[in-house]
């Protein structure tokens, strides 16, 4: 997963060739389990989280052809439960995040027909709250990260009619605080990672103009370590690859100059997504 964050950031910056793609691909393929799923490292157990990251990184390098797509798709569809939800691994933790991982991954692999999309969509819709947001399971509190997952999954499956766009759009733009940064829930501190979760959701429901973009750009840039590079969660904190990715991806969504455009649903550069869906 760290590899996905780092590599997508490099690609958005137009610097993907800074790494040897063959080495990365070899390592990723060694993380594949006999079930078809991918693990976080060689010899570990597979999980949907790492499976999507692996597929995303292969897509970045235009190397999806090294995969046995049906095998990966079988692993993913095997994790769907009777009620349409997904477990993250064979041990069964259920969360609407996993629905997104499964749907995004199968979409990239052109294998959405391998799962029950209708049931999956209904499960996600059941996680919707009266504030317009979505939680991890039915009744769970609305949270920007979960909202990204649910809206992303609904966008990919052409099911955005389940979203009350005006209500959710308002909830999401209420996440912008005085400093210009975004939080993930009411009364929480702003954090650069929500630039991604909130912005991508707003773009998918066509409401991104409801926030103050200039103030958000300033907030993200203020979280930059101008001497050593990298971006942190909020100004003056230590930088890490996770927040660097979310900061750069957020700036990309804000059409900041010098960055490639990123697809808000698949979380991959737009040229990569176009290559997947329009050149087959």
């Amino acid at each position: 997963m760290g590899a996905y964050w780092g590599l997508t950031t490099l690609d958005l910056l137009g610097k993907l060739d800074a790494l040897d793609s063959n080495e990365v691909i070899q390592w990723i393929m060694k993380c594949q389990h006999e079930s078809g799923g991918f693990a976080g490292n060689i010899g570990h157990d597979p999980h949907l989280l790492y499976t999507l990251s692996a597929v995303q990184v292969l897509a970045l390098f235009d190397k999806l052809n090294v995969l046995d797509a049906d095998k990966v798709a079988n692993y993913i569809s095997g994790l769907q439960n009777e009620d349409g939800s997904f477990s993250g691994d064979e041990w069964g933790e259920v969360d609407s995040r996993f629905s997104y991982l499964a749907i995004c991954c199968l979409s990239i692999l052109h294998r959405l027909d391998k799962m029950n999309v209708e049931k999956a969509v209904n499960y996600i819709a059941s996680c919707k709250n009266v504030d317009g947001g979505f939680g991890c399971t039915p009744g769970g509190e609305s949270h920007a990260g979960q909202i990204f997952c649910c809206v992303g999954a609904l966008a990919i499956t052409g099911s955005l009619h389940h979203v009350d766009k005006d209500l959710l759009g308002w909830w999401l733009c209420e996440r912008q605080v005085k400093s210009g940064g975004l939080n993930g829930r009411p009364e929480k501190l702003p954090d650069v990672c929500y630039s991604w979760w909130v912005l991508s959701s707003l773009i998918m429901i066509d409401r991104v103009h409801w926030i103050n973009k200039d103030k958000l750009v300033k907030f993200i840039l203020n979280c930059q370590d101008t001497e050593n590079g990298g971006i942190s969660d909020r100004p003056e904190d230590a930088v890490d690859v996770f927040h660097t990715y979310f900061g750069v991806a957020g700036l990309s969504l804000l059409e900041y100059p010098g960055l490639k455009a990123i697809d808000p649903a698949h979380a991959l550069p737009v040229d990569v997504v176009n290559r997947i869906f329009f050149q087959k």
Partner: peptide, 10 residues
């Protein structure tokens, strides 16, 4: 021992 392959990426 852990097998990271000959040239671990990370």
């Amino acid at each position: 021992p852990q097998d990271d392959g000959p040239n671990p990426v990370v």
